[in-house]
């Protein structure tokens, strides 16, 4: 069984929902990211989404854009992100790690080379923001060969035909973008999210993760009630920038926010 499937199975047995933190690899540096991944697991995270910085992050709001710029200034690259995962796996062979980013760095590495290197380093799935199912056949063949799960997005604007297209190719889980907008902006409408998740559930048995508007423990708990996984990104990156002069404090702030979310989520599902 894949790490992702095992993770969701174990959580279901405990009546728990997955807490999925997102951080941009290399922000503010690679060592910070590696330590942060372990700290996040200790704080209650179940799956880690690692952002691959890109020069032109079209679907991201200002918080993750800036994180990408800082990481690139530090010399982070797709190769470097894979290396961070390899180091993480030296101590943690259980927690699934998903890479999240844009297509061009993968195009430049080559689909096959990327899939092979990522899988070999211990990556479990890849979410590429700017490749819809229609364009993904060649990439999916490479992922299939190396047992990487292709993670796809759905959004409030996804109609039934789009949901079917995504459900036909997605593996691992489906990431539902809860707002019309970019990461870290806007406020999600819980009732709308609930309705849309019900619609998506009619077309897939994959776990559904919800992200893009999860700012605090209260929202995380509300989302945990209606989904299988809660993704938090920009709020964690704010912890880094708010403590830019002290990396330890940044780590503590991230762990603190995740621990709060964990407690609040468990309180409503257990």
């Amino acid at each position: 069984m894949s790490r992702l499937d095992a993770c969701f199975k174990a959580l279901a047995e405990q009546n728990q929902k997955a807490l999925v933190p997102f951080v941009t690899a290399g922000d503010p540096n690679a060592d910070f990211t590696l330590a942060c991944m372990h700290n996040m697991v200790k704080a209650g995270a179940n799956i880690i989404e690692l952002g691959v910085p890109f020069s032109d992050p079209m679907a991201d709001g200002p918080v993750i854009q800036k994180a990408s710029e800082r990481a690139l200034e530090q010399g982070m690259s797709l190769k470097g992100v894979i290396e961070v995962v390899r180091q993480f796996r030296e101590e943690d062979q259980v927690t699934p790690v998903i890479l999240m980013g844009y297509l061009n760095p993968i195009e430049f590495m080559g689909y096959e080379a990327f899939a092979e290197r990522a899988a070999e380093a211990g990556v479990d799935g890849v979410l590429t923001v700017d490749i819809p199912p229609e364009e993904s056949a060649a990439l999916l063949r490479a992922y299939d060969k190396y047992a990487l799960a292709p993670i796809f997005l759905l959004s409030p604007t996804s109609n039934e035909s789009r949901i079917k297209k995504v459900a036909a190719v997605a593996q691992g889980y489906i990431y539902y973008v809860s707002i019309k907008g970019v990461t870290g902006t806007g406020d999600l409408e819980l009732s709308e999210v609930t309705d849309k998740l019900a619609e998506i559930k009619r077309h897939t048995s994959l776990p559904l993760a919800v992200g893009f508007g999860v700012k605090n423990a209260n929202i995380a708990a509300n989302i945990a009630k209606i989904s299988d996984a809660v993704v938090v990104g920009s709020a964690l990156i704010n912890c880094i920038t708010d403590n830019a002069d002290d990396e330890n404090k940044g780590q503590e702030a991230i762990a603190g926010l995740l621990a709060e979310m964990r407690t609040a989520m468990d309180a409503v599902t257990k």
Binding site: F54, S55, D56, M58, L72, S77, L78, K79, Y102, L103, N104, P105, I106, E107, F108, M109, D130, I131
Partner: peptide, 18 residues
């Protein structure tokens, strides 16, 4: 490579950053 919604010739470094 791929940028701004289409595959085309691009100016990027060896890591695919524009």
């Amino acid at each position: 490579g791929v940028l701004h919604g289409n595959r085309t010739y691009l100016m990027a470094d060896e890591n695919g950053e524009i």
